[in-house]
Design a protein around this nucleic acid. Structure first.
Ligand SMILES: [Zn+2]
Ligand SMILES: [Zn+2]
Ligand SMILES: [Zn+2]
Ligand SMILES: [Zn+2]
Lengths: 159, 159
DNA sequence: GGGTATTTGATACAAAGTATCATTAAAGGG
DNA sequence: CCCTTTAATGATACTTTGTATCAAATACCC
């Protein structure tokens, strides 16, 4: 049975966009059409997209988006914590956690591209401790674990 | 007092190149002039370099290196585990640990660019456990912690 | 030293990201 | 609702990073 491609439906999307609006107000930032469109597009994709893939998906709606403006919107959404950047795949993904800025870990399947956003206490604590031990005042933690997910291993098993 | 720029001197460099030779033999791989030059250059730099910075440093010696060949050498050295790639800065650094392939964490100072390679048991265990819990068979772990190192914070403190 | 599979060089290109500045539009107050 | 202000976008051009292809060179083994 093929698992349906994960796509956030209108209800969840609405909620996320409302949350974006509140975050903007709270931070005294402007909520523009493009910022909404970028988040919306990432959510609808239901997976990580490169900036240029995202640009392609915006084109039909908003033919005049450019790389620079997409990157600006992404940067903005990242500072709000509603979008994350995956360094190891140079792509961007909508946050799965409704809370304020947080430190997360990503698990990435190299077969199907699935990305799981985790919030592991143990890892958070261990990285913090390492930073302290080595005298670093940390402000960014990239934890990206790549491998093969369960589903893909099962598929591979039966040839 | 200005701290001298960290640079690996001939003795350590020799040892690293010998190690590279042995690793190549052990893996039945060829040790070419360029591969030696790339590792040597990274070691001498004593910091992370982008592929193109590295290319510049190779030019004087070997005027006909190209981006493609540098990337190929870097890929090769990475599979041997003697060079690491920093995803969050798109750069490469010589391994500081003489052991075979290993899982490490990097601490990166966003001020001075210093990179410390750590091998923290707790983080290793915690990431492994997270992978298992979520059903991922991990084969790559990117842990890059960015912040400000102790030295840079002290410098900043006295304006 | 000669044979052979691997690696490199040369060339061209693709993908990812940024700088600059004139124009547009979001937000807030009247 | 309109006007003003300030921040964001559009347009353009460019930089940086990374890859594909195939002929020529070379490391390794004997
Ligand atoms: Zn998140
Ligand atoms: Zn998978
Ligand atoms: Zn290492
Ligand atoms: Zn520093």
């Amino acid at each position: 049975m093929a698992k349906a491609h994960k796509t956030i439906q209108p209800p969840g999307l609405e909620r996320a966009l409302d949350r974006l609006e509140h975050l903007c107000r709270a931070h005294g930032q402007r909520l523009t059409r493009q910022r909404r469109a970028v988040l919306s597009s990432l959510l609808s994709a239901g997976r990580a997209l490169s900036a240029y893939e995202l640009l392609e998906r915006l084109r039909p709606e908003d033919g005049k988006s450019t790389p620079a403006s997409v990157y600006r919107s992404l940067d903005f959404l990242m500072t709000l914590g509603v979008v994350h950047r995956l360094e190891s795949t140079r792509s961007f993904i909508a946050c799965e956690h409704p809370e304020a800025p947080h430190w997360v870990q990503f698990l990435i399947c190299r077969r199907c591209g699935q990305v799981v956003e985790a919030e592991d206490e143990r890892i958070a604590a261990a990285t913090e401790r390492l930073g302290q031990r080595l005298g670093f005042a940390l402000d960014q933690r990239v934890v990206e674990l790549t491998g093969v997910c369960e589903g893909c291993r099962e598929n591979a098993a039966r040839h």
